[in-house]
Design a protein around this nucleic acid. Structure first.
Lengths: 223, 223, 223, 223
DNA sequence: CATGAATGAGTATTCATTCAT
DNA sequence: GATGAATGAATACTCATTCAT
């Protein structure tokens, strides 16, 4: 595993200086945290795996919890990148011709993201229930913003008659469940199965589009 | 909270002798494990909460891990109860007139189950990634059997033309994602929201049925 | 060194149960604290010297500081025992015929006390500047009460013309300095010198009595 | 607080080169040592307070203990300055007309000294019991010389009939106790009280002189 | 000279587990 | 059976000291 990706993942491209040791610590911590869980992970093991002295960890991160947050925080921010990027553009900030297009772009993008950030996301999911700091950040900064954004998109296509008149939260739930269900099956539950990603994505989109299309009307794509 | 339910939940009705102390230990363990996570839970706290001596726990359960498995194992078995109960009955073991009926029965039933076994399920989900024993049991005994059973149901209704000709694993995935998505939102993410369960269930069923119905055909119920 | 004295010193005679291990821990802690100072004392060394496991210390005392306070607190209380004992008796609670008698009784009594509680007093003095909890208790409960009591005695004998008309705080300071000066020299600075305690005490009393007697009048005893 | 006094205090006027950094380190060390005690003081905190890198301390002082001794040693020497200064002068090296004059000069002088060197003296007193090197230096170079010198003075005035025929060590003890008692009360115990130094000094002198005057004879000053 | 990253032995404290009572 | 005192290995974290830059 190269050392480039970590820079990229945690730094968001800003070139804050990160010493090789710090990188090694982060990498080792990600590994150990995701393998054993935060609580059961020993700083001594992280140190050993990173090839540094135990004390070195605490030069960079005041506490073990600090180390956790340093890993999980930036990734959490990047989770919503696609939802906020073009938010300022102008009146019509929905750059998709159909909900389908949105879904397709979204799934492909997040599948890639999930692939790269697999371990960190695992840590995040595992620890959210036990770390109030994490949960708060997640609910307020992530969930909130994503929902807000998707709400607009859903309502936009509701107006256009593409989506059935069902309460928006339910629509969002259906969409998100299906997408996450796919991502989990693909990356977590059965990563070794012989997946045909493109086809699987299209099937998932078909399912969602059929599911939320107004009665009597199929999606445009899938007649 | 009475002490009856625990008996019921963990004993599956078999009247194995369980002393009040043992019950207290289990109850306390469920609370502490689900609040802090297995690793971060202290047996001393469990003992205190159960009102027994620290040593007493280890009379009943050789190790802390043993205690975990004793809690989570039986519940895991009961998760699949509806899928195996009538499996032996005879040739035609599909007691549903439509996939919709199956879904409705299934969701209602598992919502109830989830409500009762909330904490234990939380523990189960949290610990599956870290306890090989758990994962093995889960994959082989639970996932396997459920999939096997649902496969038959799905294929049955495929033949009847109710379900579109898409690979069965995908159909199952769509179904399960949607149902679990509902259960999670209902019980975990937003338990305090003012839910109209019946309506929400019907919406979910509509979504799934539309999603998996063959092109051009809506579900029977939702025209 | 027997194990009786510790009971006596820390328990004030009440027979609260103290296991042999707890006694051993206290004894070892007194030794190590007084030899190395609180900060530089290692709980591991205390454990070793007490012949118990490190963990055992923390069954009895939640923290190292707790251990310190458990040692030093009770002795602090006993320091003022002679000053509060007969305080309730009645109107005339000064059971001495002269300031001289008071001094004599006091010095003999506290010399004995100092001999027995030498190490603990050393710890107390060393740590008072750094432990706010200690300082507070000392100033309020000890210093306050002693001063209050001695003030009355001094003023009593001022009225009788035995003590010169000088501000009482100064009289107290002179008395206490001289007594403590003796005790320190006797017990701390030169414990190995060949002391004639009785004579030395009489000299000290003579010094104080001469020093505070009204001009032109010697003490009764020392013409 | 300027940076001059430190030079003065630690250097005894000799102009050994001392960089500003070294001065800052010493100043910071005095502060931290006296606030937290030697053992509990962290070199990192000293470095931070001094505005230098952690490593810099160890350029000037090989070890933490070295730093302590560098602070406390010179002050210890200066404690006895008044006792050795004119020791070489000639036969009659007692430049006081009476013990009273000696006391007065001595108390005033040492009060000033104590005021300036408060923190260092506190460190010294705190650490003498735990640092053999310090204790040795103190007993041999300080205590010894002071006693030697004061012995001569006391015996001089004994011969003149000003001081009662009591063993000299006792006389010294009385004197020193009373003086130190005053200094401690004045500077350490109750520094914020509204002191009238001049009057308080005269009272103390009166106490001592009365205390050690031969029977039947008051001091010259205080009839 | 000065830095501060790096070290690793040492710290107080926790905790699952044992076992004599 | 039930207890809880005792254990000791393991834990997160600190800190005086070193050394390459």
């Amino acid at each position: 595993m190269g050392e480039q990706w970590i820079q990229e993942i945690l730094n968001l491209g800003e070139d804050e200086k990160m010493t090789p040791k710090q990188l090694a610590i982060l990498q080792a911590a990600i590994e150990v945290f995701s393998d054993k869980g935060y609580s059961a992970a020993a700083t001594s093991e992280i140190a050993q795996k990173a090839g540094v002295a135990e004390g070195t960890i605490f030069r960079y991160y005041k506490t073990k919890k600090d180390l956790l947050l340093s890993i999980v925080g930036p990734t959490m921010s990047r989770m919503i990148a696609p939802f906020v990027l073009r938010n300022f553009k102008g009146v019509l900030d929905i750059p998709f011709d159909s909900y389908e297009d949105f879904l397709r772009a979204f799934i492909v993008n997040r599948l890639e993201f999930g692939r790269k950030n697999f371990r960190i996301i695992k840590i995040l999911i595992q620890e959210i229930p036990f770390q109030p700091a994490l949960r708060e950040q997640f609910v307020e900064n992530i969930l909130g913003k994503v929902v807000e954004r998707v709400e607009k998109i859903v309502e936009h296509f509701k107006e256009k008659g593409e989506i059935v008149e069902i309460p928006t939260p339910a629509i969002i739930r259906f969409t998100v469940s299906s997408v996450i269900g796919f991502l989990l099956a693909r990356l977590l539950l059965m990563p070794d199965k012989d997946w045909n990603d493109e086809e699987e994505i299209e099937l998932t989109i078909r399912f969602i589009m059929h599911g939320i299309s107004p009665d009597g009307i199929g999606s445009k794509t899938f007649k």
